[in-house]
Every structure is written in structure tokens, then in C-alpha cells.
Amino acid sequence: MNITAIQTALEAVKIPGTERTLGSEKAVQLLEERSDGLHIGLKFGFPVGHIAADIANSLQEAVIGITGDAHIHLSIDTEITTHKVQPGVATIKGVKNIIAVASGKGGVGKSTTTANLATAMARMGARVGVLDADLYGPSQPTMLGVQDRKPDQQNKKLIPVEADSGIQVMSIGFLVDTDQAVVWRGPMVSQALQQLMFQSEWDEVDYLFIDLPPGTGDIQLTLSQKIPVTGSVVVTTPQDIALIDARKAVDMFQKVNIPIFGVLENMSVHICSNCGHAEAIFGSEGGKNLAGRLNVPLLGQLPLSLPVREAMDGGAAKQLLDEHPTIAKIYTDAAFQIALTIADKGKDFSSRFPKIVIE
């Protein structure tokens, strides 16, 4: 069996949904001919659970002319590491990468986007967490179906609640009466955010999504100064008014050296459930144009969808993506693009550096 030819063929195999190859990602970690057949081991720096079967099929097609009827043993692993954050901020134990989801304006579907991106990432095989930083209006417990649960405490740490999808969830909504208004000044809000972040016992989370409140105030400032953020996602509708506030969120991230992974346009079009007529109620291409001006990807365009609204109200994010493949594909493609962008960033080596203590 010609191992060199097999290696060359493997490295040319494309990763579905991308222009990348197994060779460009240095994914082929094992290639051995053994008595029971050919053993191939792949390793990726991003989750590939949603495309693992396609990768296996493409791989087999690429090498079958060389391997003949030899049995192929294929293993696919992922190793998601911690990547660089803004300067001067230390990473958090148990959390590898943090993605801030912001909008600048309320009511554009930021929390819905957070819940569904997190669910999509978990379905792809990653270990995922969600921190609900919208302290005045926490909605993640409801959207992820854990509103009746409470976090346990262990060694003076809060144990995030785990949703059915496997997502670790932490929210002020678990700790206060959600029927009462949170009447706190800025310093109290900032302190509460830090406590939720640093006093939670996160369990080896690959990607932690932070659902930010609207605006560019105290919580956003605390996020940029105290919390290690790998990058951000900006959510907007195509409407001009929403885009004005989205640009403010963009400006904030740029000023604090937090990269923007992309723009996700929500409520891009309404499709009548009776006749199928599509109407751009909030305008068209606003998010796409914003992404173009920023030179960042347009992560997706989500229609105004009744199943999405019903799923979020009913705490059924996982069921939504399981039962509606078209919607699932949009969120999965967006989550995959985020994961690829993170994988391309420089790695964080701060945990390997010795601490210098001056005595």
C-alpha cells in the first residue's frame, strides 16, 4: 500500500462547507497500515460533529483508488484550545473561549441568537456554556428550558445549571425573583456580572456565549476590562434604526480591542405561513451592508419565524434545531464560521508562564 500517495490524497480532501482541506488544517495525525487494515486519525481545532459523516465519505472516495478493498479504521477527534483575548486580561479556569453577543439595541433577537448559536455549537460536539449578562432582563433560563432550576453550590462556587442540550447555564435569573425589577446602580451590576463569571465552576467549556444587554454601558465596560473575550458577534435587524445602534456596539468593541467575528441579521424577511409570500418588513440587506463596511463575515440572515418564537417561549431551543432543518442550518453555519475564526486566532499561552512574585 502506497502510504505517501494516501497521505497526498488525504491532504487534498476538502472540509465540507469551507475552502479548507485536511492538509491546510494539519488534520491528519495518524496514518498507519496494520494487519487489520489502514488506520487514519484526524484531529481538528474546531467541532466537526455536524460534518463528520461527510468528512468520512469524502475521505473514503479520495483513497479508495489507492487502498482497494483494504478496511479503513477512521477516528475523528477535536482539540479546542484557548485563544488570545484582549491585552492585560487573564483567562478563566474552566473556560477556553468567550464569545460576546451584542446588539446595541433591544428587541432585535440577541438573546434568541445567543441561545440558538449555543445550541448549534453543542450539537456540533463542543462543550458549551451560556452566561446571561442581561441582568435587568434575564431570558436565557426560559429559552434554554431551565427556568425552574437553581444552581448548586460547592466550595463557595456556583455550579452552572445544565440544560437538556448539555449547555451549562448561569444567570441572575436563577438567583433573584424574576417577577421583580432589578433596581441596581452601575457598580452593583458590574459586581454581579463578575460574580456570575468568576464564582461559577465552569466545567471545561470550549465556547462560552455571553448574552449582553442592549447598549454600551457598565456591563459592556466591565466585560471589556475584566473578562477575557475571544471575540464578539453583532446582531441586528435590517432596519435603519437598529443598524444605528449596532454600529455603536461595533465601535465599542473596536475601541477595547475585541475582534468582531461577524454580523448576524435577524428578522431579515417575513414569510407568510399561509401563502408563502416573502416580505422584507424591516427593510433588506442592512446586516449584509454593515458586515461589508466592517469587512467581517455576514454569519447568516434569519427570517421572522413563528417556530423560533414558539421554541424560545417554550424553552425548546434543542427541539427547534432538531425539528426544523432549514433554521438549524442557518444557526449551525453561523456557529461553525465562528468556531473556524476562533481556531485561526493565535493561541493563549499565559497559563504556561510562571508567575513572578516580588518579595
Rank of each mutant, 00 (worst) to 15 (best):
G315V: 11
E310L: 10
G292Y: 11
E323C: 07
V296K: 14
I327H: 02
G286C: 10
A291W: 13
L298Y: 11
L302M: 10
E323A: 15
H324M: 14
V308D: 05
L320N: 05
L302A: 02
P303H: 15
G286F: 14
L320K: 00
I327W: 04
L321Q: 00
S305P: 02
L304M: 08
P303R: 14
G286Y: 12
K329R: 07
A311K: 02
I327Q: 00
L290I: 09
K288N: 05
L320Q: 02
M312T: 10
L321G: 03
G287P: 00
L306N: 08
N289P: 05
L304T: 04
H324V: 06
P325F: 11
L304I: 03
S305T: 09
Q319L: 04
G314V: 06
K318A: 15
L306T: 07
L290R: 04
A328P: 03
N295V: 08
V308Y: 15
P297F: 15
G314F: 02
L304S: 10
P307S: 14
T326W: 09
H324Q: 05
A316Q: 14
K329F: 00
G287E: 05
I327V: 12
E310K: 05
L320S: 03
A317N: 01
K288W: 09
A316L: 13
K329P: 01
R293E: 06
I330C: 08
G287A: 10
L294Y: 11
L306E: 10
K329W: 04
V296C: 15
M312F: 09
L302R: 00
S305L: 11
K318T: 02
Q319K: 14
E323F: 04
L290E: 09
A317D: 08
E323I: 04
H324L: 12
A316R: 15
P297E: 14
G315K: 06
S305R: 12
A328Q: 03
P303L: 15
K288S: 08
L294Q: 08
Q301M: 15
E323P: 00
G314Y: 01
Q319M: 07
L306R: 04
A317G: 07
Q319T: 04
S305I: 10
A317F: 09
L294K: 05
L321Y: 03
D313H: 08
L298P: 04
A311N: 01
G314L: 02
K318Q: 12
A317K: 06
P297A: 06
G300H: 07
K288A: 07
L321H: 01
M312C: 10
K288V: 05
L299N: 05
A316T: 07
D322L: 03
G315A: 10
L306M: 14
A317C: 08
L298K: 07
P325G: 06
Q319A: 14
I330W: 02
K288H: 01
P307N: 10
V308S: 09
L306S: 13
L299Y: 03
A316D: 13
A316V: 02
N295L: 09
L299H: 00
L302I: 12
I330K: 13
V308L: 11
L320T: 03
K288C: 05
G292V: 13
G287Y: 03
S305K: 07
P307T: 02
G292M: 14
P325I: 01
H324W: 01
L294P: 03
G314T: 04
I330L: 12
K318F: 07
E310R: 01
Q319I: 00
